[in-house]
Design a binder for these strands. Structure first.
Lengths: 118, 118
DNA sequence: TCAACGATTCAAGGATTATTGAAATATGGA
DNA sequence: TCCATATTTCAATAATCCTTGAATCGTTGA
């Protein structure tokens, strides 16, 4: 994730509807969600959700794939992880004071990485 | 850090000049930098830097404090850490797949938090 | 008090982004 | 083929954001 991508990602996440969409897609995992379901649960019009989905895709945070009549959108976990990493490393310079709370979260949710601490 | 603050912070970081300013302020630490120095190093006009500094302050990412004729801006480490935490917890749901790369960074830059893993 | 310095505020403009509803596209089934 | 479904695209409008330069404000030292 370079600065260009990070700027786009921050812009994409700075809008309420889009942040809501990302959260839903993260929760729904690899199965993703159809555009219509997203629109329904986010309570926005089809054309409006399409606009925001395009924006999220342009930022690399989600991907799409047609499944019969529906278009399924899926969160790009790699990009989201990359953004967190960008924020910690490139933006905050790996500063311990800033990263500490993140490390605490990481300890809780990603036990697999404990090995990397040896 | 609640969603309202996170949205503002994402918006603040989605602009090249502002991202540049944050990086400089993180590096300069508690000493911070005067508005004039920031403008000079970011190569933008005084009024323009003032506009962006106000935006960053509104988002809670920096604080200001007058020092004689200068106004010194300082990065708010707590807010930056809070944003990373928001991204990991609230937005990404603590999903291990997403948080893994962050945990790897945390392992390198914040050894003090190792204790929290016991 | 006055001039100079460091910075902000303001108004105007240009540029980008968001919302809306109508029209167009693609797919699947009768 | 024709219709219904799922979604996108388009054009128009509204809203927000960025940039610029001139004017203003607060501080310091002569």
């Amino acid at each position: 994730m370079d600065q260009r991508q990070a700027l786009a990602a921050f812009g994409a996440l700075s809008q309420e509807t889009r942040l809501h969409i990302i959260r839903m897609l993260v929760v729904s995992g690899p199965d993703g969600m159809a555009a219509g379901s997203i629109a329904e649960r986010a309570e926005v019009s089809p054309s409006n959700v399409s606009f925001h989905l395009k924006e999220l895709e342009r930022a690399g945070l989600i991907t799409q794939q047609r499944e019969s009549r529906s278009i399924i959108y899926t969160a790009n976990y790699e990009a989201l992880g990359g953004l967190i990493r960008f924020l910690m490393e490139d933006c905050c310079g790996g500063n311990a004071e800033i990263c500490a709370p993140a490390a605490a979260v990481a300890a809780c949710c990603a036990p697999a990485t404990k090995e990397e601490l040896q």
